[in-house]
Computed example of a mutant assay.
Amino acid sequence: MSAAPTRDSGGDFPWWLVAAGLIAAAAAIGIASSDLYLQVLRIVARGIGITIAVTVVAFALASALGLGIALMALSGSRVLRQAARFYVEIIRGVPILVLLFWIAFAGAPALVAAWNVVAAPLHAAGIGEPLMVRDLSLLWRAVIALTIAYSAFIAEIFRAGLQSVDIGQIEAAKALGLSRYRRFRHVVGPQAFRTILPPYGNDFVAMVKDSSLVSVLGVADITQMGKIYASGSFRFFETYSIVAYIYLILTVGLSLALRALEQRMRRNSRT
């Protein structure tokens, strides 16, 4: 029997990261030595906070909603399972940009109208005032749209992760008298999380990029700030080079952090 092929550890050296780092360093030097690029950077960087806030809030809400949809998909109720499947398939079938427009200009007015109907008795009693569509800012409409869009994808990730846990271990935990919470806390959750983390992290990185879609609503994120500056100065090459540079720094940095977390969890699981 021939020996199993050994894995060359030198082949795993992240040469791509070295190349990317050199390019990023050269770009940083070029930006620092140019007054024009520095000016563009100062303008575009004003949108970083909005981009990060939209990403974090929308992803957190999408994760909570996605977990609920995943639990519905795994429930014993046929109605809940079918409702979860309907939600996932419909939402995944609509482009995010189209969903963004629909939520912003059709869903938001409908939501405000529904709220006013529900709160009508309170308004009649002099408690509060009816909402106007303009009271729901475009920023929150964008967050709601991203939440709904990504919740369908995250629900499938959670469902697959929960189903990957060996049913025998769950039955053993039941035999030991563990409550449903303790079974999830000590048996299902840790194992499912290791399966979920890579695609879950990829979705987070993808949302950083897809958050640029909120610029179509005029939300002052990185892309919108770049669009405003470029349209006024006609410096399209310089502006969108800076925009791309910032997004690359954010996404590559997140990808490296997530990969380090995966490797750490893998080492901990072996010990």
Rank of each mutant, 00 (worst) to 15 (best):
93 G>D: 03
263 Q>I: 09
260 A>T: 11
111 L>I: 14
79 V>W: 10
181 Y>D: 13
76 G>A: 08
52 I>L: 13
204 F>W: 03
239 T>D: 06
249 I>T: 11
34 S>L: 09
116 N>Q: 14
80 L>S: 02
163 Q>M: 15
157 I>W: 00
265 M>Y: 09
172 A>M: 10
44 V>C: 07
178 L>H: 07
33 S>P: 14
6 T>F: 14
45 A>Q: 04
45 A>M: 09
36 L>D: 15
230 A>H: 11
155 A>K: 07
267 R>N: 13
54 V>G: 02
147 T>P: 01
242 I>A: 09
105 F>P: 03
248 L>C: 14
30 G>A: 04
137 S>A: 05
132 M>L: 15
19 A>P: 06
198 P>M: 11
92 R>C: 13
237 F>P: 00
202 N>D: 10
43 I>Y: 14
28 A>T: 14
139 L>Q: 06
62 A>P: 04
168 G>S: 07
219 V>R: 05
166 D>E: 07
191 Q>P: 04
17 L>D: 05
50 I>A: 08
44 V>H: 09
70 A>D: 05
139 L>M: 07
186 H>G: 02
50 I>P: 00
215 S>D: 01
221 D>L: 01
9 S>M: 08
50 I>H: 02
258 L>F: 10
190 P>Q: 03
17 L>H: 01
7 R>L: 15
180 R>H: 09
87 Y>I: 03
83 A>R: 00
214 V>K: 00
197 L>C: 05
222 I>W: 02
247 Y>Q: 12
72 M>V: 07
112 V>Q: 14
49 G>R: 06
256 L>K: 04
78 R>S: 09
244 A>M: 12
270 R>V: 13
149 A>Q: 08
120 A>K: 09
226 G>T: 07
226 G>M: 05
264 R>K: 10
175 A>N: 07
265 M>T: 13
156 E>I: 13
85 R>A: 13
108 A>H: 02
174 K>A: 14
254 L>A: 11
194 R>P: 11
87 Y>S: 02
202 N>I: 01
249 I>M: 13
40 V>D: 14
151 S>F: 11
255 S>M: 09
234 F>N: 13
265 M>A: 03
123 H>L: 06
30 G>S: 02
144 I>Y: 07
8 D>F: 10
46 R>Q: 12
75 S>H: 03
33 S>I: 01
222 I>N: 01
10 G>H: 06
91 I>M: 10
270 R>L: 11
158 F>T: 00
75 S>P: 13
215 S>G: 04
107 G>W: 02
242 I>S: 07
8 D>T: 10
68 G>L: 04
253 G>N: 06
97 L>K: 01
224 Q>E: 04
210 D>C: 08
205 V>I: 15
39 Q>V: 03
106 A>R: 11
98 V>Y: 00
215 S>Q: 05
101 F>I: 11
169 Q>T: 09
251 T>Q: 10
162 L>W: 00
88 V>N: 00
63 S>W: 06
249 I>R: 10
261 L>H: 04
150 Y>S: 05
101 F>Y: 07
